[in-house]
């Protein structure tokens, strides 16, 4: 993989130029009390003081609300305004952690499964992902147990690793990344050969996700096991909404008089309305069954059908959970029980 040097000044120039060329640049920004991905208009808005952002990078391709089309009914005549693909901007997403970047792989496998979701794929196609290796981790991180690592290049178009002098090693991962580097070739200089590994956070691999995959199907019918696992869970959408790989959505019409639009918005298997049938029957009627769905989806259904795991070990769900449902612990208890 080709490596270059991007000095801190060149990084600033790069972002400033991208903004100047009307790219939509999305970066981790400190907003009020938390750090999240937001559109920026100046380099100075960026922060690097985070383990991971609260919400995941998925919002760039799978925003919490996506207007699919508009409609208008007038004198019994219905007119429809389709989704305007020209409205999707060329974007550069920066400061994406390797776990988050890898999450797009899982997410894409769902959105391109039996039919291609054109809106999602177009948003992603028009986005260049500049990842940022992790130099620190916390108790929630478990990427190394889930086939990732703090310096993994998978999913990024370019991966930056910050060196002790504040400059960056730039690894050019994809053609898209190479194109961006070519467009700003004067900013990327010859690599000094710094040891990347020594710059990365240490994340202990406490279990192997393969062992979860091997075991989880045999637990499916163990009702008592799932009830116990989910005792604490109070059933909300926090874990799913912040997760880089959760793809469940709801379709809603929002109308006012004869005018309206159809919106795709996030849905969560934690909520009691999830999979509730019109008849009133719900195949997942208690929290144990809903929690089982969450784990089975990530560690059984996705590996079986899409050949990918549905969890990248970012730990976001556990940080966001109001009752500290730590997913890594639950994985280990699947292996142990």
């Amino acid at each position: 993989m080709e490596r270059k040097l991007l000095t801190k000044d060149s990084y600033r120039s790069l972002i400033t130029k991208l903004i100047g060329q009307n790219y939509q640049v999305v970066a981790p920004v400190k907003k009020d009390t938390m750090i999240d991905f937001l559109k920026i208009s100046s380099f100075d808005e960026i922060t690097e003081d985070y383990i991971v952002t609260v919400s995941s990078a998925k919002t760039v391709a799978f925003p919490r609300n996506e207007k699919l089309f508009d409609y208008e009914k007038q004198n019994k005549k219905l007119t429809q305004q389709d989704f305007d693909f020209d409205s999707i901007p060329q974007s550069v997403l920066i400061g994406v952690r390797p776990c988050d970047a890898f999450g797009f792989h899982s997410l894409s496998s769902i959105f391109c499964w039996d039919s291609i979701d054109k809106i999602y794929t177009t948003r992603l196609e028009r986005t260049t992902i500049i990842g940022l290796s992790c130099n620190k981790a916390d108790d929630y991180c478990f990427c190394t147990s889930a086939k990732g690592s703090p310096g993994s290049t998978a999913g990024s178009d370019i991966l930056l690793t910050k060196m002790t002098d504040g400059n960056y090693i730039a690894e050019i991962v994809t053609e898209k990344g190479a194109k961006l580097v070519a467009d700003f070739s004067d900013l990327f200089t010859a690599d000094g050969g710094a040891d990347k590994e020594s710059l990365l956070a240490k994340v202990a691999a406490n279990f192997s996700v393969d062992d979860v995959l091997a075991k989880i199907n045999s637990k499916f019918e163990d009702e008592a096991f799932w009830t116990e696992q989910a005792m604490r869970c109070i059933g909300c959408g926090a874990c799913a909404y912040v997760c880089p790989t959760c793809a469940c959505f709801d379709i809603q019409d929002e109308s006012h008089g004869g005018k309206g639009h159809r919106v795709r918005c996030w849905d969560s298997c934690g909520l009691s309305l999830f999979t509730l049938h019109t008849s009133g029957h719900n195949p997942r009627e208690n929290q144990g069954q809903r929690w089982r769905q969450r784990l089975m989806h990530k560690f059984s259904y996705m590996p079986d059908r899409l050949n990918t795991i549905g969890c990248v070990g970012c730990g976001r769900c556990s940080r966001a959970c109001p009752v500290d449902m730590n997913i890594a612990e639950h994985c280990m208890s699947i292996i142990e029980n």
């Binding site: 909300c236 959408g237 909404y241 966001a320 109001p322």
Partner: peptide
């Protein structure tokens, strides 16, 4: 900023 996760309600 609210993502309507309903964690406030659930807790």
């Amino acid at each position: 900023k609210c993502i309507k996760c309903y964690a406030c309600r659930a807790s």
